[in-house]
């Protein structure tokens, strides 16, 4: 018998603190698998966020740096500029990236930083107890939107990929839900492409993974996956938003943006 599937060595052999059914574990594994497959483990430096995934610095076996809340793209910028031969990734939740760290991620993208961002969107703050996130959906009840998110009161959920797709400097941009084996396989491909964009020197890469928070949502892991499919996916349409090779040094990118960015990833309700 040969091993067809096992824990990637880029993850430390230890149990995680994540709640049952939380898809952080899947996302960690995909990143680790890609790092191994691309043969960059020895050059990899990960940046952990503040939030549920803060302890990612323990779980990944590569060099790791813990960043202040939302600042991971700035920290990654510093690492990459100091060590251009390092393969640098950040792993950030939606509060970290899309709320307090929005400026950092947008500007890292605009600079075309050669880093890879793994963005976990589960529409809630998990670590702090299920508060409203910038990605919390309309009508969604959280511990700080107890009556359900209403635009007049709490504003609209932010679509990060749609926001970043017009930013020059982005070389790869995709959104994939982690709702089933086929989607997980697709997510793995997206993560790999985002890393490849960094390795090829093409620019900034980000993969948004639609994830679950069964505890914060008050659902079983099964129900949570279904909720991603039925409620999150319609608002956060999956797809590859950018696959072009942005050239942070300049070049004819501006001319290409109009044709490369299409509406293929769903409607803009």
């Amino acid at each position: 018998m040969r091993v067809a599937f096992k824990r990637p060595d880029a993850l430390v052999d230890m149990p995680t603190h994540y709640c049952p059914g939380c898809t952080h574990g899947i996302a960690h594994r995909l990143v680790a698998e890609v790092i191994e497959e691309l043969g960059v483990f020895d050059r990899a430096v990960g940046v952990a966020p503040v939030g549920c995934a803060v302890l990612a610095y323990d779980y990944f076996a590569c060099d790791m740096v813990q960043a202040a809340h939302g600042r991971a793209p700035a920290v990654a910028t510093g690492i990459k500029r100091a060590r251009p031969d390092a393969v640098v990734f950040t792993y950030q939740g939606d509060g970290d990236l899309a709320s307090i760290g929005m400026a950092e991620v947008v500007h890292a993208a605009a600079r075309g930083e050669l880093v890879t961002v793994i963005f976990i969107n589960n529409a809630i703050y998990g670590m702090t107890g299920g508060q409203m996130a910038p990605t919390t959906l309309l009508g969604q009840q959280t511990t700080t939107s107890p009556f359900g998110r209403e635009p007049a009161r709490e504003g609209y959920p932010i679509r990060v990929c749609e926001l970043l797709e017009r930013v020059r400097g982005v070389a790869y941009l995709a959104r994939v839900p982690l709702t089933g084996p086929a989607q997980v396989a697709r997510a793995r491909t997206a993560v790999k492409r985002a890393f490849q964009a960094q390795l090829d020197g093409k620019g900034f890469g980000l993969v948004e993974l639609l994830s679950t928070c069964p505890t914060g949502w008050g659902m079983s892991p099964r129900e949570a996956l279904k909720w991603v499919e039925e409620v999150m996916v319609p608002y956060y349409p999956p797809g590859e938003f950018r696959t072009d090779a942005a050239d942070p040094g300049g070049g004819p990118l501006l001319a290409r943006v109009g044709s490369e960015v299409s509406g293929k990833h769903g409607e803009q309700a």
């Binding site: 040969r2 067809a4 599937f5 574990g25 698998e33």
Partner: peptide, 26 residues
């Protein structure tokens, strides 16, 4: 592939021809 906690290891019988065999890890 769906397990968030790396609980599962999968084995497959050795094939005579490895061609076309795709490991779970890709």
């Amino acid at each position: 592939r769906m397990c968030p906690d790396l609980v599962i290891t999968v084995y497959r019988p050795e094939r005579r021809s490895a061609a076309g065999a795709r490991e779970g890890r890709g």
